[in-house]
Amino acid sequence: MKAIVNVSLKAGVLDSQGKAVKHALDSLHFEGISDVRVGKQIILKLNETDADKAMSDVTKMCEDLLANTVIEEYEIEIIA
């Protein structure tokens, strides 16, 4: 199965890249954007076949390495 991990800065932590991207979109006259957040996506191919086990493994990976929880939050999607 596959795990898709999205890591982004926590709400309340200034996202300078998001701000710069929003500014660029504004200057291209794309309207109606109230906020832009830039994050990163990490895609893992797993040998695990149990979705719950995969979720708990990947959560541990996020806590240990994939995200710095001082400034970042993460979302995990497990795909069979």
Partner: peptide
């Protein structure tokens, strides 16, 4: 040292990038 938890806080990308 911050990543290793030996010092508090974190270092982010410079504000002006």
């Amino acid at each position: 040292l911050t990543e290793a938890g030996l010092l508090p806080g974190a270092l982010k990308r410079n504000e002006h990038l």
